[in-house]
Write a protein that binds this DNA or RNA. Structure first.
Lengths: 199, 199, 199, 199
DNA sequence: ACGTAAGCGAGACGGTACGTCGCGTCTTACC
DNA sequence: GGTAAGACGCGACGTACCGTCTCGCTTACGT
C-alpha cells in the first residue's frame, strides 16, 4: 500500500500502542522474565499472531518501545550534558512522565539483559554530563581509575533513580536532582579535593 | 538410610557439587536466564531427574549455592562491619576466591531477580559497615534522605565490584578496598562536610 | 457495471485463467494436497486477496476448472455411450489435449476427494457405454453382482487411463482405445461367456 | 532404560495403541486430510506433545500403523501368491478383521498419497499371484502390454475391495474371492484365449 | 475519448494447527 | 536408597496458511 502520507496505517498504530502498553503493565504485574507473549496479547486484546507480525519476540517489543521513549526524550531536549543542572531536572521530569516504563527498565522487574544495557546508556549520559569536570588520567594508584569512577557513578545513578521511582510519593524532580547532584558529584569531585588538600 | 554422622551420602555430595559447578559454568557461558535445567544436568553429566531430587528448579539450585558460599564467608569471618577497613579487604579476598561465582551474581549474566536481592544484601552489609558513622535522621530537605544515600551506596558498591571482577588483570583487594573506601565514604560523608563548611 | 453481453471483464478472465494454469502447474509440481493458495497466487502473479474474490478456496478453483474442461468435452461431443468405439477414441483424444489436467485429476498427485469423484463420473460414463450390453440382474451367487462389475470396471478404467498418461511416449488414442476395449469388455462379458460355455 | 525383556514399556504400548485407534476412527469420521494431530490426540486422550514423542506427524503414525497391520498379515501367512485360491481367501479374511482400517486406506477417506501407495503394494501382490500364469512379453500391438494389464488389474482389485468394504452386509470372503477370481483372471487370461481362438 | 465503477494490489487482522522445547512429575530397573 | 532412563501432561514458542476486511490506485467498459 503506497502511503501518500508518511504516517502509518491507523490499525497498525493502534495495535503497536496496545501491545506496548500491555508490555509495561504486564511487566509491572509479574516481571518481564515471567511475562509471556500470550500474556501480552491477551492483555492487549490482540491476536497472538498479530504480535508476531510486528515484533519478533517480547525483547524486540521492549527494545522498540525503549527506542520510542528515547525519541520522545530527544525531542523534548531532555538531554543532559554541558553540565547544566537544568538538563538533569528536565531528564527527571521526562522520567516522571513514564513512571511505569522507567520503573520497569530500572527496577527489580527488569530482566537481566535490560538494566545493564540501560545502565550503559546512563553511564554514557552521566559521562557526557560530567566529562568536562575533569579529564585527566592520573595513573596515581592512590586515586581510583576514571573508569571505575564512572562505572560507580552510573550504578549509583541508576540505583538512586530506582529508589526515586519506588517511592510512594516521590519528591519533585528539582528536589531529587539537587540530591543526585550532591551525591554524585561527591564521588567524582570530592576525592580530588581531598587529594588536593591532604598532602 | 539414616545417617549416623551428619555427613551426607558421598554420591549425594558428588551430585550436588557437580550441579553447582555446572550452574556457574553454564551461567558464565550463556547467562542464567537462558540456562536450562537440561544444560546444567548434561554439563554435570547427571540425569535430569536426579536434579529434581535435589532442587526444585534452577533458582533453588542457585539459592542453595549462594547460601553455601555465604557459609564459607561467615566461617572466614570476612564480614564487614564495625568500620574495620580490614573487614573490607577480607571480603574482597574472599570474593577473589570465587571470581566466577561473584561475576555471575553481580554481572551482566545475572538474572533480574538475582542482583537486586544481592544488592539488598550488600546494602545491609554496607549499612552495617557505616552505620556508626552517623545515624541522625535530618528531615532537612537540603540533605538527601539517609535511605537514598544507602541505596545509592549499595548500587555503587555493586557496580564497582562488578567492574573489579570484569577487569582482565584485577588490582589487589587492598588497592581496590582503598579506592572503594574513598569513593563510598565520599557519598556518605562529604556532603555533610560540605554542609558543615558551607554555611 | 452490468455486462450487456455475457462476456466477462477482460481482467477477470485473465485472472481466472492465470489461476487455473497455476493450479495445474502447481499440482504437477508438488501435488494438490501440499499446494497452498499462496503457491497458486504467487505462481500466477496475482494477489492473494484477488484469489478469494473469485474462488472460495483451492477446491473451488479446481472444481470450476473441472467444470470448464467438462464443458469443452461436451462441446466436442466426446461423450462415450451408445457403445460406439469412436466415442471412446474421441474421449481419449480430448484427454490428450489436456494431459497435465487429466494427469492431475487421475494420477498420484490428486487429492483423495478428487479421484474418487472422478471415478464415480467415469463409472457413470462406462455404465452408459456398456449398459445396453446387458442389464439383467441375476441373483445367481456364482456371477458377480452387476454393481461390483461396474465398480471394478470404473476403477480399472481410471487405472488404465492413469497408466496411459504416465507413459513417456503414449500410444495413440486409437491403440489405447483398442486395448481398453479388450480388457474391459473381458470383465463384463467373458465371465458370462464362460458361464455359458462351462456347463 | 535397559530392557531385560524385549517387550516395550507398557505405557508406550498403550499410548501407541490409543493413537492408532484414534487415527482410524478419526479418519472414518472426517477423512484423513482434514484430520489434525489435535483431533487424534484429543480423541485418544493423550497429550499432543506425547504424540510427537512417538510419531513425526500423522503420516508417520499412519505408516507405522500400516506396517503393524502388514506384520499381522505376514504372521497369519495371508500372503497371496503361488496362485493359491486359498491365499486370496485368507487375505480377505484378514481384511475383514480390520474393516475400518482397510476401508480407510482403500476408500474415499484416504488421502491421495495413501491409496496409490497401497495400490502399488496390491499390484505387487497380484503380480506375485498371477505371475506364473504367463510371463511372455509379446510386442504384438494387438495385445495390451503386460504392464498395462497389471496396472489395470491392481486398480480393479482395489476398486473391488473398496466396494466389498462399503457393503452394508458384505458377502463372505469365499464368495468375494470367487468373484474377484473370475473378474480379474478374465482381464489377464481371456484376452489371450480369445486371441488364441479367434484367428 | 473519456469518466467511472469494477477489478486489483497491498497488507492488517483474527484464527487455528503446526512441530519444537523446556518444565516438573512419575515409574521402573539397576546398583 | 541413590541414580539412570525415559514416558507423560502441560504450556509457550515462533511459523505458516487460512479466510475476511479495508483502502487507494488503475484499468477496461459503456456511453
Amino acid at each position: 500500500m503506497q502511503k501518500l502520507d508518511g504516517v502509518e496505517d491507523l490499525r497498525v498504530r493502534r495495535t503497536r500502542k496496545l501491545l506496548q502498553q500491555a508490555l509495561i503493565e504486564g511487566t509491572v504485574d509479574k516481571g518481564f522474565a515471567a511475562l509471556t507473549v500470550r500474556d501480552i496479547t491477551s492483555r492487549a486484546m490482540v491476536n497472538r499472531s498479530t504480535f508476531y507480525r510486528h515484533y519478533h519476540d517480547k525483547y524486540d517489543l521492549l527494545e522498540q518501545h525503549i527506542n520510542a521513549i528515547y525519541e520522545v526524550l530527544e525531542e523534548e531536549g531532555g538531554i543532559i550534558g554541558e553540565g547544566r543542572h537544568e538538563g538533569l531536572i528536565e531528564l527527571f521530569k521526562h522520567i516522571q512522565q513514564f513512571p511505569d516504563f522507567y520503573g520497569v527498565v530500572l527496577g527489580a522487574q527488569a530482566d537481566a539483559f535490560l538494566s545493564p544495557s540501560f545502565r550503559q546508556q546512563t553511564r554514557q549520559r552521566f559521562l557526557a554530563y560530567f566529562q568536562q569536570t575533569f579529564s585527566e588520567a592520573t595513573s596515581d594508584p592512590e586515586t581510583p581509575p576514571l573508569d571505575l569512577k564512572f562505572t560507580t557513578v552510573a550504578s549509583a545513578g541508576c540505583g538512586a533513580l530506582a529508589w526515586w521511582l519506588e517511592q510512594e510519593r516521590p519528591s519533585t524532580p528539582e528536589q531529587f536532582a539537587h540530591w543526585m547532584q550532591q551525591i554524585i558529584s561527591d564521588i567524582l569531585v570530592s576525592t580530588r579535593l581531598r587529594q588536593d588538600s591532604e598532602p
